[in-house]
Design a protein around this nucleic acid. Sequence first.
DNA 1: ATGAAAGCGCTAACAG
DNA 2: CTGTTAGCGCTTTCAT
Lengths: 353, 353
Amino acid sequence: MTGIRDVAREVGMSTASVSRALRGLPGVSPATRHRVLEAARRLGYVASPQAAGLASGTTRTIGVVVPFVTRWYFSWIVQGAQDRLRGEGYDLLLYNLGGKESARERLLATRYLAKRVDALLVLALTPTPEEQENLRSWDLPVGLVGAEAPGFCCVDIDDVGVSAQAVDHLVELGHERIAYVGGGLEDTLDHRAPRLRAEGWRAAMARHGLPLVPGYDEVGDFTMAGGERAGERLMELADPPTAIYAASDEMAIGVLRALRRAGRRTPQDVSVMGVDDHEMASFLDLTTVAQPVYEQGEAITAMLLAALRGELAAESPAGSPAGSPTNQGSATRRTFPTTLVVRSSTAPPGGTG
Amino acid sequence: MTGIRDVAREVGMSTASVSRALRGLPGVSPATRHRVLEAARRLGYVASPQAAGLASGTTRTIGVVVPFVTRWYFSWIVQGAQDRLRGEGYDLLLYNLGGKESARERLLATRYLAKRVDALLVLALTPTPEEQENLRSWDLPVGLVGAEAPGFCCVDIDDVGVSAQAVDHLVELGHERIAYVGGGLEDTLDHRAPRLRAEGWRAAMARHGLPLVPGYDEVGDFTMAGGERAGERLMELADPPTAIYAASDEMAIGVLRALRRAGRRTPQDVSVMGVDDHEMASFLDLTTVAQPVYEQGEAITAMLLAALRGELAAESPAGSPAGSPTNQGSATRRTFPTTLVVRSSTAPPGGTG
DNA sequence: ATGAAAGCGCTAACAG
DNA sequence: CTGTTAGCGCTTTCAT
């Protein structure tokens, strides 16, 4: 395994100079740099990240903690992050909670990650106060997507507003009996979105003076299968809704299937809409509230990179330069807009075609 | 950042003993080990992976190179890998090629990864001979999924057989005009599956004495959108097929949409089937050839872990113990079975209902 | 512009 | 069973 000493020997210089030349640091004559680069290339030399990291105190790695890898939303955030990272020389360590509490404990409650990464990205998970305290003590940039906490970079959408857009659309069409399909207890525990979307639904219903019919608040677990079961239950109600608003497209798709199986037509008998604008939504002509997922992944990663470059005033001294957007401590916050996308899964109630 | 010396000081012992105690190595009295563990816990000590790695020559990390993170297939392989890794103390470094040649070059043609990981997993990509040579010189376990090369652990399915299963099913139903929707030039370049599935389709057609109608070999790029375009083109043909076999469910779904838009009914007018058994396939009642994706991810990772434990005879000496499955050099190979899943998107041709 | 020397925080060999 | 002594392969002062 050719090391820096081999390169140094090759060009007859010290390892220190080779190191400087290779990293493009100032204080190296152009001629020397050229010779070093040439020799390194010829020998196929690549610096050991371990040794470099140990000596410099960095890892050139960012960690990403996701609840699930296989869900559309998370994979696109990761994609956005990857694309931003590309070319910056940072590698991405992926940690999958997969619903396991133990994994969360090890990652968020010990200093394990603190020694492995230069920055951390946590998706769709609101750290507990203790976890937040711990993360802050690591003294590295932490980014949150779909969550918020003081001192961290945050990127999100207005989840209450998402529900408002959905309910407003359905009400405008003339619906009054609007059911909601959201997450289960587990989902709403420390994932903000399910909770806020449910609240948003209730608030919007109230704003329109509409009743919250018992049984209209269903659990879909953010999966297609869960959405399907929720749809079945809703159709078994004595007074089924004329419209169903699911907090994700995947659940909405499950609902669509339940309706089809129950012999209900969409949208003539029941209107259905979701959230996300999943690729499949356009295929199924599902009305939805679109959110820019990939862009959120890019944005949070850009913030992290900026923080790593020291571009975000760490611990923002008393007289911080006003003007810039929400910038508390070393953190920045950005809320992305969502858009109603009307397709043909929603229509006025009681329609005949 | 509390280090091993702090722990050593705390218990009044040498760092060497603390290191041994912490890692569960033999040669430490139970009492001592207990005191050390206790002190480490109290101080919140976690060993620096960088330093430990530098000293021990390992990284406790495996690298995974994927062409895309957002595709169903890859995310499930990664999920399978994660689940196998969990508890083994290995972290996962995710590298996304994202179609960029430059990324591939850096990862597979330099020794960069060799210094960052203990083992490498490459998905759906057949390394070029040069890349193979390079990878072998790294002298670490390398696993391939959906590809094969001598000296590497391989996990795959019988892609030619997949097409045979599909075509046989359609022929059994009475179809003769069977079109294929596969990858484009780029896909078939060094991804084995698209190429083999196309070959399998041709072979199966020939075996049944069926003609390869010009225009029946379409490009779907393994995406829904691509499948939709392919479906459109097929329906514009003077003599459109009565059945369409797409090499992936996502493309098949695109085809379904194209048919619907063209006013063709499925399966009455045109039968459609895919490959994978994507979650969406069951929702859309799509006939498909199912492959165990998650299990492939688990299996290849298990092989890598076994190799890391030294359980696979490295460089298998001349008189290797016969009997075990395909085991060349330090590599193992495993081919998973695929299953025809008949749903209602396929039916005899010319059906009226 | 370059070199020498001193670590970074661990683990590994070898003593005892 | 435990401690001592060397590094692992770089980066970083501090000289020169």
